[in-house]
């Protein structure tokens, strides 16, 4: 290939885009690079690379945030909620998608009705409900609340059922297999692509959620990782080197998740109907 203006233009274009990418990610560079500096160095040269790598901020952040407890809380809340959402959502989608009677259309409509209700509208009554169940300030209270997000799963599953062949279920029925058994053994495994999408997005939403933990969790031992950042800013707002270290620590699990799941996240968005 010889010299051509078109090629020069393409290469320049790509270089410009890469530069824009770097600017786009600059806030994260700023965040990470300042965690290794002391207050004075960060003030005088915030964008420079650290002169010496000091891990003091990380040690302080780690000591103050009860990391393992909070990580465990976030993990438990997310894992159990998502499992419940997937099971309840898939189960509910099955009759709605497969049975022809119009009763099921009405039921689907009923589920659609609440889909648009913002969390902010129902938070005070939810507070009362949790209080009655003695689940305030408990990670189980959050699990209970998040389980109601199963209607999102229901819609996604319901839309996908059309592309799962019914013949297998019918032949299972002829062999004397009841709907319960046939659903779990035959249908549910075939739903795997949507299950993956649902799991990934619900994990991101629940793991990152701040509103409900902020309203319903009040003590350090029940805090999620996101809540630790909120608490940290309230307590140590002046020690921002340490605050930034806290944020980096909290971001690491998310980053790992993103690196592994990036392809699926993009596939999930491109398959449509996933809210942002």
């Amino acid at each position: 290939m010889g010299f051509s203006w078109k090629r020069v233009r393409n290469i320049t274009g790509e270089a410009v885009m890469l530069l824009i990418c770097c600017i786009f990610l600059l806030p994260f560079y700023y965040l990470v690079v300042n965690t290794f500096k002391n207050q004075q160095e960060a003030s005088s040269a915030p964008m420079a690379l650290p002169e010496t790598i000091s891990l003091d901020n990380y040690v302080k952040a780690f000591d103050s945030m009860n990391f393992f407890r909070s990580f465990g809380n976030s993990l438990l809340i997310t894992a159990i909620s998502v499992a419940v959402i997937v099971l309840f959502g898939a189960m509910a989608a099955y009759p709605v998608a497969r049975r022809k009677h119009k009763v099921y259309k009405g039921i689907l409509l009923y589920f659609l009705l609440g889909y648009m209700v913002p969390a902010q509208t129902i938070m005070i009554p939810l507070y009362l409900t949790l209080q009655k169940m003695h689940l305030l300030n408990s990670i189980w209270g959050l699990v209970v609340i998040y389980s109601s997000w199963c209607n999102f799963a229901l819609f996604l599953y319901q839309g996908f059922f059309g592309s799962v062949p019914e013949e297998l279920e019918e032949s299972a029925k002829i062999d004397g297999c009841g709907p319960w058994k046939s659903f779990w053994l035959i249908t549910f495994p075939l739903l795997r692509p949507v299950t993956a999408t649902i799991v990934i997005f619900e994990v991101m939403w629940i793991w990152n959620d701040f509103l409900y933990p902020y309203l319903f969790l009040s003590s350090n031992k029940s805090f999620t990782l996101v809540m630790q950042v909120y608490k940290g800013v309230g307590q140590f707002s002046n020690d921002w080197g340490m605050m930034m270290a806290t944020m980096v620590i909290v971001l690491i699990p998310v980053l790992v998740f993103y690196l592994f799941m990036q392809k699926n996240i993009v596939a999930g968005i491109t398959s449509g109907s996933v809210k942002g």
């Binding site: 009705l113 609440g114 109601s148 709907p179």
Partner: peptide, 18 residues
């Protein structure tokens, strides 16, 4: 019966609070 769990959590935690 497949609808029961989703129906309960949805009703108790979204529609009733609404």
């Amino acid at each position: 019966l497949f609808l029961v769990p989703a129906f309960i959590v949805y009703t108790v935690l979204i529609m009733w609070p609404l």
